[in-house]
């Protein structure tokens, strides 16, 4: 956690976005501190992916501001934001299918100034070992299973040593073993490299276990923000997302 008063690593400040008549994101504010995991929950269509798209510069917000490391990101391209230490994964893994697993990891390194070839090779191979794909280093990505593609995509976000990684439903539809690997890797990346994560997921118990903070969107607006245990108890969150499954109908 950052010291009180200091600017958080990522600040989302009063952000709104409309698509035609649909208000996809409405006045959303919260922040991600250094070396922390923030879980983002909410029903389908509540604006989670849209928010990630705004944060990494794919979409421009209609209102509000994003600050990364204290400076506003308005007008910056996704590749600029990547250079500032922002990385992300997608709801459906987007690997480069005709490149090998190893080559996929080199794509983000093109503009890394200080990196020399040897260091890059080491970094890429270490990451394949980290996510358990080293045996598949020379296989083209399209030959990997869906779960392996997710692991590869995750390794690709880490190759530039990002300060914050946005992950859009990383556990959706993956084998429990892959999910366990992803969770272990996320934890280790936070503790070893000091990175932060903003993770969208419907696997609420897992997210509660791994998050320092949680935020719930309902219909584009923040329904709750705070400690995970508190967020899942909130009236608005239960009504708008989790439901009252324990109670008799």
């Amino acid at each position: 956690m950052s010291a009180a008063g200091a600017e958080a690593l990522l600040t989302i400040d009063g952000v709104g976005k409309r698509f035609g008549g649909v208000a996809a994101v409405r006045d959303v504010s919260f922040s991600v501190a250094d070396r922390s995991v923030v879980g983002l929950i909410g029903p389908n269509g509540s604006g989670k992916t849209t928010l990630l798209n705004i944060v990494n510069g794919v979409l421009a917000p209609d209102r509000g501001e994003i600050r990364l490391g204290g400076s506003a990101t308005a007008g910056r391209r996704p590749s600029d934001l990547a250079a500032l230490g922002l990385a992300r994964t997608f709801q459906a893994a987007r690997v480069f299918r005709t490149l090998t697993a190893m080559q996929n990891l080199f794509v983000p390194l093109l503009h890394q100034k200080a990196l020399e070839r040897r260091a890059a090779h080491r970094r890429a191979f270490d990451l394949l070992v980290f996510v358990g794909l080293e045996r598949h280093a020379d296989r083209v990505a399209s030959e990997l299973s869906g779960g392996q593609q997710r692991l590869l995509e995750f390794a690709r976000t880490l190759v530039t040593r990002p300060r914050i990684v946005l992950m859009d439903e990383p556990f959706a539809g993956v084998h429990p073993q892959i999910k366990a690997t992803l969770i272990r890797c996320i934890r280790e990346t936070v503790s070893r490299e000091g990175a932060s994560f903003l993770i969208v997921s419907h696997e609420v118990p897992d997210l509660v276990a791994m998050s320092d903070r949680m935020v719930c969107l309902v219909e584009g607006a923040v329904a709750a923000w705070g400690a995970p245990a508190d967020v899942v108890q909130e009236e608005k969150v239960i009504d708008g997302y989790l439901g009252r499954s324990e109670e008799p109908a």
Partner: peptide, 17 residues
């Protein structure tokens, strides 16, 4: 090749496309 396959993803991953 990344640009050929998924130009938006290439940009997001950090390639100044």
């Amino acid at each position: 090749v990344a640009i050929r396959e998924d130009e938006d993803a290439a940009e997001i991953v950090g390639v100044r496309t």
